[in-house]
Computed example of a mutant assay.
Amino acid sequence: MDTFFASRTEEHFLAYTLPHFIVLAAMLLLAIAMFRFKSAIRSNARAKTFIRIALLLCLIIPEAALYAWYGAEGLWDVQYTLPLELCSISQMLAVIMLLTRSRLLYQIVFFAGIGGALQAMFTPDLVFAFPHFRFFHFFIVHIAIILAAFYMTWIEQYRPTWKSIGITMIFLNILVVIVGGIDYWLDANYMFLRHKPETASLLDVLGPYPLYLIIEELIALVIFTIMYLPFLRRKGSTAA
């Protein structure tokens, strides 16, 4: 148990080792299962409630445990531990979305939540390796963000639109201004707005500061457009 909650570790997380492949496979299998059985889940009120509550618990409990761990280990630091990363914000929005079934929040979580969480899953900014508590927290929360958006899409039958992309881009730019101001005030680096992360990430190939911020925004726009294409094709098939 001491090792599970240790504040320091000598064995750092390495991407694309067996534990990483296992959690990536788990994410894929859970998404496939939700899609495969979406009609059965949709027609069963108890199943819908169970999945929605399970997603809420996976979003809330690990995060609550994280802040309890910060406090217990004396790791609380406003420069590093505030919930101001994109995935932390998407996580909070996903919780509110699941509780209120907000269509506005769904649009943001679908694009920004899935996009950000997938990047985090494939290029984790993570120090602690399996089986540390932080390993489980990181992957459970990011998988839950993705599945929450899929739940609203496949089970609740919400759909994004072209307008949703614009709403998400506006939201992200407002967020950059707010978080960027907090970064400057606290001498922090939330959302990597002042420099790239210390560990390997996709930002490494996007050029120096501040160029990578501009390129990152253009890439986000392209990714959101690609994410919307299946819905555009479905509309065309329905019209035909």
Rank of each mutant, 00 (worst) to 15 (best):
F5S: 02
A6G: 04
E11I: 12
Y16N: 03
T17L: 00
L18F: 15
I22D: 10
A26H: 05
L29V: 15
L30W: 06
A33I: 01
R36Q: 08
S43Y: 09
S43M: 09
A45E: 15
K48N: 07
F50T: 13
F50Y: 14
R52A: 10
L56K: 07
I60S: 12
E63R: 12
A68E: 10
W69K: 09
T81C: 02
L82N: 10
S88H: 03
M92Y: 12
A94N: 01
V95P: 05
I96S: 01
R101F: 09
R103Y: 09
L104D: 04
Q107N: 15
F111R: 07
G113W: 02
G115H: 06
G116L: 04
L118T: 05
M121W: 02
T123Q: 04
P124I: 04
D125K: 00
P131F: 11
P131L: 09
F135V: 11
F136L: 13
F136I: 09
H137M: 10
F139A: 01
I140P: 08
V141N: 08
I145H: 13
I145T: 13
A148C: 05
A149T: 04
F150V: 02
M152I: 03
W154V: 01
Q157C: 04
Y158F: 15
T161C: 00
W162S: 03
W162A: 07
I165R: 00
T168N: 04
F171L: 07
V176P: 00
I178Q: 05
I178E: 08
G181R: 11
I182N: 07
D183S: 07
F192K: 00
F192T: 02
K196A: 06
P197I: 10
L203G: 02
D204F: 09
V205Q: 11
Y209K: 03
I215C: 03
I219M: 14
I223G: 02
I223C: 10
I223K: 00
F224H: 05
M227R: 01
L232D: 02
T238F: 10
